[in-house]
Design a protein around this nucleic acid. Structure first.
Length: 129
DNA sequence: ATTCTTACA
DNA sequence: TGTAAGAA
């Protein structure tokens, strides 16, 4: 499939798909006319990459993670690179901090919403009565 | 109609 | 990332 279809199926802008390629993620083959040709299994990868990026993981790191994610099942102790492991631990910690950050703000907003609902309820009750 | 590249806000 | 220009 060409970029337009993948964009639609993975709900990812063509702009982003081209950017992913530029960053070394998802490298599609080219047709005679120069058009990018994507295999169906790349739909899931595109979605996954988009999710990773939305999670705040830099593309550099995503490039390192993708290979690991594909074979997360068959990890061989001998193949574990300490350098990569350190980077992943670091990234994991940033994710944790981001989650805590988001949690605080979500709770803050939730509290405001609850207060607003109650205020609205009181106003309605007063108008009705 | 679609996609490609390049570049700017 | 969105968007636009010009070519294929």
């Amino acid at each position: 499939m060409r970029i337009g279809e993948l964009a639609k199926l993975s709900n990812t802008p063509t702009r982003s798909l081209r950017y992913y390629e530029e960053q070394g993620l998802i490298i599609p083959r080219r047709l005679e006319n120069g058009y990018r040709e994507y295999d169906p299994y790349l739909i899931d990868r595109a979605i996954q990459i988009r999710g990773l990026i939305d999670s705040g993981i830099p593309t550099k790191i995503i490039a390192l993670i993708l290979p690991c994610l594909d074979k997360a099942r068959g990890i061989v102790p001998e193949d574990i690179e300490p350098e990569l492991l350190a980077i992943l631990r670091d990234e994991r910690d940033r994710m944790t901090q981001r989650i805590e950050f988001l949690t605080r703000n979500r709770d803050s907003i939730a509290t405001y919403i609850d207060a607003a609902d109650e205020a609205l309820a009181r106003r309605t009750a007063g108008t009705a009565a």
